[in-house]
């Protein structure tokens, strides 16, 4: 009379997420196009993500720019005898890798950790259950606004980071290597163009997409008490960071077909 269940029955409840990442991904896409879309929450999250992380990211990319210029100049002088290629080389490195990856990794540790801890806490304090009892789908309510906000923030912050990084590189090149603004820009233009900035923004958006997904995945899986929230947060930052490096590799190899 009673039916023996299969693994599939377990998945009936979309929020018993302990199963797999793919189901969260699918649900998120579904919820992305299912009303209600919480626009104001999305804007709030965007403000939080972009505004809160911008300062840290800017500082980090400034230093990255300095190191890039000084290091590449040192080595180029050593190997080919002059440093005329430094601006172009640095610009490529910044636009194709540094700007997006540094932004992504910092977003993962700041924003990703926040999302994972928040959802994990909601899970263990039964707030997720309460949402469901009150007719709210947690993915729609929590994940989707963060996802949208993070995609836009990822792209925009990446563009800003790239511009600031390039500007710092120019200033450093001026001070230490004597490249004037015009000389620097001419050298940059021989290697890089606007497309590089655009592709970098695509990378940033992709990173912005995976960070909330990975973080919510870990958040929803949290079971125990405060200690587990901590572990969940750590795991989610590690996983997002690995995902970012991996996606960076995939996108870079894809984009290299385009250049």
């Amino acid at each position: 009379m009673f039916t023996k269940s299969t693994q599939q029955d377990e998945n009936l409840n979309q929020y018993e997420f302990s199963k797999n990442f793919a189901s969260l991904l699918v649900h998120s896409f579904k919820e992305l196009i299912t009303p209600p879309l919480r626009i104001s929450e999305g804007i709030k999250q965007f403000h939080f993500i972009a505004h809160e992380s911008l300062f840290v990211i800017i500082i980090c990319v400034c230093f990255a720019a300095m190191v890039t210029i000084l290091e590449s100049s040192f080595h180029m002088k050593l190997v080919i005898g002059n440093d005329s290629l430094v601006p172009g080389f640095a610009a490529l490195l910044i636009l194709r890798e540094l700007g997006a990856v540094i932004t992504g990794l910092l977003l993962a540790s700041r924003v990703g950790a926040g999302i994972a801890a928040e959802i994990a806490t909601m899970k263990i304090t039964e707030q997720i259950d309460a949402l469901q009892m009150l007719g709210v789908r947690p993915v729609n309510y929590i994940v989707v606004p963060r996802l949208i906000a993070s995609v836009f923030a990822g792209a925009i912050v990446t563009i800003l980071a790239n511009l600031v990084c390039l500007l710092t590189a120019q200033v450093i090149a001026d001070i230490y290597l004597g490249f004037s603004f015009e000389m620097f820009m001419t050298a940059v233009k021989r290697f890089a163009d606007f497309n590089d900035l655009f592709l970098s923004a695509i990378k940033g958006a992709s990173f912005g997409f995976v960070i909330p997904l990975v973080s919510s995945y870990y958040g929803f899986r949290c079971k125990g008490g405060a200690e587990d929230v901590g572990q969940t947060t750590t795991k989610s930052v590690v996983a997002s960071s690995i995902a970012i490096i991996f996606i960076d590799f995939i996108l870079t190899s894809l984009f290299s077909q385009l250049y």
Binding site: M1, F2, T3, K4, S5, D9, E10, L12, N13, Q14, Y15, E16, D129, Q132, M133, R137
Partner: peptide
Amino acid sequence: LVGLLRPDSGQIWVDDQEISRYSE
């Protein structure tokens, strides 16, 4: 009973409906 967890086996009847296999 409210579908926040799902049973491995068995049934839950509310009035004349068996609900344990209900969708979300």
